[in-house]
């Protein structure tokens, strides 16, 4: 394939079992879908041979300010938001209603 930046030909390399393309001109690297995650996973295994501890709650960014009468939000009180990957149908209706 051709480099999307400088249009020089790209060569395929195998890095820890992950196929990556490198441009012979500008040395830029092209990663297919999922390859960056695969490399990141390999890197964390390399630097942390022991099994990783369970994800800490601090991994979530701090929630923006909310009033005290509001629902407990994620990151503040252990959180139980009603949002998620799929919005509740009733809230979908609420978003569009007076």
């Amino acid at each position: 394939m051709q480099c999307p930046k400088c249009h020089a030909p790209m060569h395929t390399f195998n890095r820890n079992g992950v196929q990556i393309e490198q441009c012979s001109g500008c040395r830029g690297i092209f990663l297919d879908y999922g390859e960056l995650e695969a490399l990141t996973r390999l890197e964390s295994q390399w630097s942390q041979p022991a099994p990783p501890p369970p994800a800490a709650p601090q991994a979530y960014p701090a929630a923006p300010a909310a009033p005290a009468w509001g629902a407990p939000h994620g990151g503040q009180h252990g959180g139980h938001g009603h949002y998620g990957h799929h919005r509740h149908k009733s809230f979908g209706h609420m978003l569009f209603s007076s």
Partner: peptide
């Protein structure tokens, strides 16, 4: 209100504000 009630995700409220 939607954000306060835990219905609107924090990032959408943050973007709006």
């Amino acid at each position: 209100a939607w954000y306060a009630c835990g219905l609107l995700p924090p990032d959408e409220w943050t973007r709006f504000l």
